[in-house]
Write a protein that binds this DNA or RNA. Structure first.
Lengths: 173, 173
DNA sequence: GAGTTGACTAATTGATGAATCACTAACCTG
DNA sequence: CAGGTTAGTGATTCATCAATTAGTCAACTC
């Protein structure tokens, strides 16, 4: 592990973190690569050493944000008792909403981008979460697992909006 | 009603309709006023006779889209029987999702725009819908009206995502 | 310690966009 | 029909952005 490699890896994740912040705050299309670079404390062209296009950076940022949710839920699924499963999943999501608000805001933005590569990434992330929750509900012997999964996801999406618009009256958790 | 006034009104609503389409398809920040003008079959500068800024046009487009939902729900609330209330509200929303997809996509975009004027418009629209549904559920004697309203809204938001990402497996209606 | 490699940036490019300006043509009114 | 008003546009402005190029400098290699 040379000094170079270490820096390089850090730079890449610096850029991703900066991109998540700037994209979430400003909006992906309005945000500029110069703003991302400034936040990451590098020069603007240097972003393109790690990401061939701005869109490639967005896709990586989305992957990070979905991994956050999926890993968090997986831990709950692997450890929670059947009775506590749904409660703990909800708690895990609340933690994400509070600690990684920008990642959620970025996912919400990406939901409306009509670009096939991005829609694919979003379908992938959403589908994986749904599948994991559904399997977990079934394994826990929860009746109407299909319906309960849908309601769980639906409440999550309403929480997103509640957080994004600062409407606490919608946060029914 | 002179010929002038009539034309002028038509132009304005032409522009709004075009803006809803173009903003929804392309994304508000990426979409250009030239694209909106082309869709409305007018010149680009002429947009600014009716809307002082691009953002003013967005706000008007959002108002139109919220009016669509609110008027539609009001009709249901004023006519439906207590037993059929929720079912008919859901049906009304499905119609909107199918017939005015672009307006819904625009609302979804606006949910993530961190600009106070836009957040205010979104809070206003969302709040009015919530209030109307909650009152109607209470008037209909539905138990746990608060909770049922939340679930109704939550399912609606999941339907939006299902439609936006083309994930029919999420459409649980 | 000459030469190579890797980290990083300044300067530039070629497009593009919101908004303004200056204008024409049609219409309407007295 | 003269003077004023409305509908509408071409051309321009000034700013901005993603991406490229060409390069600097420090560190490692042998």
């Amino acid at each position: 592990m040379t000094k170079f490699e270490t820096k390089s890896v850090n730079r890449k994740s610096d850029i991703i973190s900066a991109a998540i912040e700037v994209f979430a705050e400003t909006g992906y299309f309005r945000a500029t690569t110069a703003q991302v670079a400034e936040r990451a404390k590098i020069s603007q062209p240097y972003i393109f050493r790690f990401f061939s296009t701005k869109e490639a950076l967005l896709l990586t940022a989305l992957e990070v944000s979905w991994t956050r949710v999926i890993d968090s839920f997986r831990k709950v699924v692997e450890s929670a008792s059947p009775e506590q499963l749904e409660t703990e999943l909800i708690q895990a999501y609340v933690v994400i909403l509070e600690s990684y608000r920008n990642e959620v805001l970025l996912q919400m933005q990406a939901q409306t981008i009509q670009e096939e590569s991005i829609r694919e990434a979003m379908r992938g992330g959403f589908g994986e979460v749904r599948h994991m929750v559904l399997d977990a509900f079934r394994s826990a012997g929860i009746p109407n697992a299909e319906e309960r999964t849908m309601l769980f996801l639906a409440r999550g999406m309403l929480c997103n909006i509640s957080a994004a618009l600062a409407m606490p009256e919608l946060m029914g958790i």
